[in-house]
């Protein structure tokens, strides 16, 4: 994997380089600032396959750099691991909002660092295979290719607080590790998305899911929460437990906004939207740091809430890619 590692501290750059090289990652480019990184990205004859950005640097910081990189078409989905020595939630939130997919904390634990790199490597290599497979399909066949099933996540882009499922897991792990605040999560489902999926193509369905995500993001704006669409019409939302709204308090406003055609535009399927919202789930005292089972419990609580509609049963892992 061709990696660009950016840190303003020369010694940190050397530690990264030495550690990566010792583990077989020999194609590593180092940059000392955000500006330097952008120059090296522009000058690179072949694209980078993974990035490591220090969050706090003078001049352009890692978050701003991440935003720049995400605006480049070829790097929209490239793993970006943020490097942080800080336990300031605001910085970390900004980094994930900017499109970071994972993090490592300084001082580095070699095993942890390499776990993150290998995970990024695996994701990147799967993405490459998928791209190659897509490129191998003739255009006519591709147009006729079956759309992904309803149970699959779709990627929602450029909505505040919306991240991919894997990035949401990584964010939660970081917050749990840092014990910054009591976390909570809840899940919500928009059942009519199933009919929208059945009656539209992939692109149209993605637009509607994106609109719904935007409405959720607006409803949660004061809660500084993150959310992810995990498939099956279900979104998982995570944030500080005491800031997340209860199901009752957000339901009516949420449904009203869902049915505002200026906010959720859906011409393919004539439908009104409803919402099922689960209670908030939180980590339990006996659960270790990094234990993400409370996210599964959030989905279970949604299924319990929706049981009257006959939608019980599945867990988050069953939905997630």
């Amino acid at each position: 994997m061709k990696i660009l590692a950016v840190d303003d501290d020369e010694l940190i750059r050397e530690i990264l380089s030495a550690t990566l090289e010792a583990h077989g990652y020999t194609d590593v480019t180092l940059a000392e600032s955000g500006e330097d990184a952008l120059q090296k990205i522009a000058a690179s004859p072949t694209p980078f396959e993974g990035f490591m950005f220090d969050i706090q640097m003078p001049g352009m910081d890692g978050t701003e750099l991440c935003q720049h990189v995400r605006q480049m078409e070829q790097y929209r989905n490239t793993p970006v691991i943020m490097i942080t020595a800080m336990n300031n939630k605001e910085y970390v939130d900004r980094a994930f909002m900017a499109g970071a997919t994972d993090y490592v904390t300084k001082p580095f634990d070699t095993t942890e660092l390499m776990t993150r790199i290998r995970l990024a490597d695996r994701l990147q290599s799967e993405a490459r295979k998928a791209q190659a497979a897509q490129a191998a399909v003739p255009a006519a066949t591709a147009a006729a290719a079956p759309k992904p099933p309803f149970k699959d996540p779709v990627t929602v882009k450029e909505v505040r607080g919306v991240v991919k499922s894997a990035a949401l897991d990584n964010y939660v792990m970081l917050m749990l590790e840092q014990k910054q605040f009591a976390m909570g999560a809840f899940a919500l489902r928009v059942p009519e998305l199933e009919a929208v999926h059945a009656g539209s193509n992939t692109e149209e369905f993605t637009y509607v899911v994106t609109d719904v995500a935007e409405v959720i993001s607006d409803v949660l704006v004061g809660a500084q929460a993150f959310l992810s669409y995990i498939g099956n019409g279900v979104f998982v939302c995570v944030g500080a437990k005491n800031k997340l709204p209860s199901a009752d308090s957000m339901h009516d406003e949420f449904v009203m906004m869902l049915n505002d055609p200026d906010l959720v535009y859906c011409e393919e399927v004539a439908t009104g939207f409803s919402a099922q919202i689960g209670d908030i789930a939180a980590p339990k005292l006996f659960e270790k740091r990094g234990d993400l089972r409370f996210l599964d419990r959030a989905v279970e609580k949604l299924n319990e809430a929706a049981a009257g509609g006959g939608r019980g049963g599945s867990g988050r892992s069953a939905f997630a890619a």
Binding site: D8, L11, I12, I15, M86, K106
Partner: peptide
């Protein structure tokens, strides 16, 4: 901040 980042590794 820089010192915080490097000390543990050193």
């Amino acid at each position: 901040h820089k010192l915080h980042g490097i000390c543990g590794s050193m």
